[in-house]
């Protein structure tokens, strides 16, 4: 890690404009260094941001697409294009756009992939221990409900879907979400509030009319 050595003097300037404060580069310093080709800075930068990239991918991907594959594709784009970024402060919206576009592009391959349904032969032995069956059943019901909520959240309009899912990533603050989406904190707060109301209304509508849930599942099913 090419961090400046010596005492912990504040404001030490590291290689490639990576500003070091108390032994850690600031985010803006990392971005500037990464743009200039510092590999360590780019790796650190990616580790700081990949989790919310996963949430953006989740907000835009078709159900059958794999999050890890798509995040991998975003990482490839990051490596290939970081040097094109002119303004370090635009890094987060820029990365968010790459993630959203990558996930959307994967949807265009859906039709072709649907032709290749997985066909298996042979018998698999269940390995679930009996004593854990009840607990596993309860966990499954709870997870089913959580997953159903997430599926519903992914049907919300983009402007509500993204802040709502980002808020679920390690408690990202309104300010941090605003930086990614390039929006004021107050707008983020309002959209999360409205998004939650829409989500609740969707869930209630499905509870009173299970056919809606089946229709949604059918639309999302591979």
């Amino acid at each position: 890690m090419p961090i400046a050595t010596g005492t912990a003097a504040a404001g030490i300037v590291g290689r490639a404009r990576g500003v070091v404060t108390g032994g850690h580069r600031t985010s803006s310093g990392l971005i500037a260094a990464a743009i200039e080709g510092d590999r360590d800075a780019l790796r650190d930068l990616w580790r700081q941001h990949r989790r919310w990239v996963g949430a953006i991918v989740l907000a835009h991907k078709p159900r059958e697409a794999d999050v890890e594959d798509l995040v991998q594709a975003v990482a490839v784009q990051l490596v290939a294009k970081i040097h094109e970024l002119r303004e370090p402060e635009a890094f987060k919206p820029w990365l968010r756009a790459i993630a959203a576009n990558t996930a959307r592009a994967s949807g265009r391959k859906t039709t072709r992939r649907r032709k290749h349904r997985l066909k298996l032969v042979g018998v698999a032995r269940a390995v679930e221990p009996d004593h854990a069956a009840a607990e596993a059943h309860a966990q499954k019901e709870s997870m089913d409900q959580a997953r159903r909520l997430m599926d519903l959240a992914r049907t919300l309009p983009e402007g509500y879907r993204e802040p709502l899912l980002l808020r679920c990533v390690r408690g990202m603050s309104y300010r941090q979400i605003g930086e990614v989406l390039d929006l004021p904190e107050t707008t983020i707060e309002t959209r999360i509030a409205r998004g939650r109301r829409m989500l609740r209304e969707l869930a209630e509508a499905e509870n009173t009319n299970p056919a809606r849930a089946e229709a949604r599942a059918g639309r999302m099913e591979v």
Partner: peptide, 14 residues
């Protein structure tokens, strides 16, 4: 649900 679904992102290394 989001934490579980987005967790694979953590395994992607540059």
């Amino acid at each position: 649900a989001v934490e579980i679904a987005s967790a694979p992102a953590e395994s992607v290394e540059l």
